[in-house]
Each structure stands twice: as structure tokens, then as C-alpha cells.
Simulated scan of single mutants.
Amino acid sequence: MAQALLTGTKLRLVFQVGMDEEGKPIMKSKTFSNVKKDSTTDQLFQAAIAISGLTNDMLNNLERNDTSEILAE
């Protein structure tokens, strides 16, 4: 049986920075590495709201990206 060992967590914020000529939204993202692996969803959400308050762009999406190492027992 194999086990997954959580090795890292990243927080990715996606912002809408404007509209193109066809009226489609233009998106840009910012990824923060070295996020505490035991951070809760609510803590990450609060951090994202605080960070987005420092910019004029609208926060469109928030993602948590976990990385795991698969180990054989």
C-alpha cells in the first residue's frame, strides 16, 4: 500500500485586470510559495482577501495547490 506525504502548498490568486477588444476578461495570476501546509481554507481565504486589497484589480479566483510525494510502504 502507498502513502501520500504532503510536501508543499502554494496559494494562487487570479485577478481580472481588464477587458480585451472583444469584451473578454484579461486574467493575470500571482502564486505564493512556502504557504504553511496546515493552513485552513478559511485562513487562505482571509489571506487572499487581504492581498487583493493591496491591488486595484478584481480577485476572480483563488486556488490552493498541494504537492505530495507518494511513498511505498
Rank of each mutant, 00 (worst) to 15 (best):
F45T: 09
L6C: 05
V14Q: 00
V17M: 08
A4E: 09
T41K: 12
I26G: 05
L62I: 14
L5H: 13
L5R: 09
A72E: 14
N60R: 14
K30S: 05
M27N: 08
G23Y: 00
N65E: 14
K28W: 08
G18C: 03
S39E: 07
L54N: 05
E63N: 14
F45G: 00
L62W: 15
P25G: 15
D42E: 13
R64I: 11
I70D: 14
I51S: 07
Q3I: 15
E63W: 15
S39Q: 09
L11Q: 10
D20Q: 06
S29Q: 11
N34G: 05
N60C: 13
K36D: 09
M27W: 12
V14H: 10
E73G: 01
K36S: 07
V14S: 08
V17T: 15
S68Y: 15
Q16K: 13
A50K: 08
A4D: 10
S29H: 09
R64Y: 06
D42I: 00
V14N: 01
G8Y: 01
L11G: 08
L54V: 11
D20H: 02
A72V: 13
K36P: 02
V35D: 08
Q16F: 01
N61S: 13
S52K: 03
K24Q: 13
L13P: 07
I70F: 15
L6K: 15
K30I: 12
S39G: 05
K36G: 03
V17S: 05
G23P: 03
S29R: 06
A47N: 01
A48S: 11
A48G: 04
Q3F: 15
T9N: 02
S52H: 08
G53S: 00
L71T: 11
K30D: 13
N61W: 14
I51C: 04
I70K: 01
N65A: 14
T9R: 15
K37C: 10
L54I: 00
Q46E: 10
S52W: 00
K28D: 02
F32G: 01
M58S: 09
T31P: 10
D38K: 02
L54H: 06
G53K: 02
A50P: 07
T55L: 09
N56H: 11
R12I: 12
N65Q: 14
Q43F: 09
E22C: 01
E73F: 05
I70S: 11
E69Q: 10
Q16Y: 00
A48N: 08
T67Q: 10
E73T: 06
L6H: 13
